[in-house]
């Protein structure tokens, strides 16, 4: 690889673009200038820190530290899933369902890809395991959050329809079937759109990064295809699991719709 090394002052030069944008938003009274600058600062600090963590992790390379890093990423992703929902299940259920679904999908797809497709030695080599898991978790998180948000919103908005179907003797699964399918579609749409547009409308970030870092385009493309496929599988299975578990939790053992199990952001004592 023959990447051109980037120094910090070159990054500072790039940050001038963000500052110019912030100046424009101030001038246009958009009210997002401060958020933009804080977000840019967070990006720089968070990525610099994760760079240090990854370097240390690559140096140690033990399964324990890789697993611990994976666990931390999973828990943060679970927290993020909850934060993105307008209505969430009380008592930490949204967190538990989101985290479990991502664990089932993202972790299993990552391990399967490492062992059966890429085959590094050892299979948990952090240089492959952590970026792959990060990509999968990030995308699965989006799918799970979108799916759960759509499902809980539908349960509240369409309570009359679901209860009327229950009154007619339909099972809980029949009564909310349409809303469950709608939620699963919502979770899957971003990755379907991304796959359909890849290479035509957009050059995916990972591939672009690899090419910029000096990889041959043919190799970068192969990795990108692999990543797209694993993200699709991870997102799909994660969304399926999360929507299935959450929809069951919206009904009790007597198959009664329990919208009282939902609370709005800010009223969930588990997270406030």
């Amino acid at each position: 690889m023959n990447a051109i090394a980037l120094s910090w002052w070159q990054l500072a030069l790039a940050s001038c673009l963000v500052m110019a944008l912030a100046a424009c938003t101030f001038a246009a009274h958009l009210g997002v200038g401060k958020s933009l600058l804080i977000a840019a600062l967070r990006t720089a600090i968070q990525l610099a820190l994760i760079g240090l963590v990854l370097e240390a992790l690559f140096a140690v390379g033990s399964l324990f530290w890789v697993a611990l890093m994976g666990l931390a990423m999973l828990l943060l992703a679970g927290r993020e899933v909850v934060a993105r929902q307008k209505y969430r299940l009380r008592g930490g259920w949204s967190f538990a369902i989101g985290t479990l679904s991502m664990f089932i999908s993202a972790f299993s797809v990552t391990v399967l890809t490492l062992v059966a497709v890429i085959g590094p030695e050892p299979w948990y080599q952090p240089q492959y395991a952590i970026p792959l898991l990060g990509m999968l978790l990030g995308n699965t998180m989006t799918g799970v959050a979108l799916g759960l948000d759509r499902l809980t919103e539908s349960a509240r908005r369409s309570r009359n329809i679901i209860e009327n179907r229950l009154m007619l003797g339909e099972t809980w699964s029949e009564a909310c079937g349409d809303f469950r399918r709608e939620a699963m579609r919502a979770g899957l749409m971003p990755i379907i759109n991304a796959m359909a547009a890849a290479g035509i409308v957009s050059l995916p970030g990972m591939m672009t990064g690899q090419i910029l870092a000096g990889s041959p385009p043919a190799l970068a493309v192969k990795y990108q295809i692999l990543i797209m496929f694993t993200i699709a599988a991870g997102t799909g299975f994660g969304t399926f699991a999360a929507v299935a578990l959450c929809s069951r939790r919206l009904f009790d053992r007597r198959e009664r719709l329990r919208v009282d199990r939902l609370t709005t952001a800010g009223h969930d004592r588990f997270f406030t």
Partner: peptide, 18 residues
């Protein structure tokens, strides 16, 4: 629950249609 409601059926004041 669904078998009970199939047998003991409520017709609400405001019906829903899907």
């Amino acid at each position: 629950g669904h078998r009970w409601r199939r047998s003991v059926m409520m017709v609400p004041a405001e019906s829903a249609w899907w």
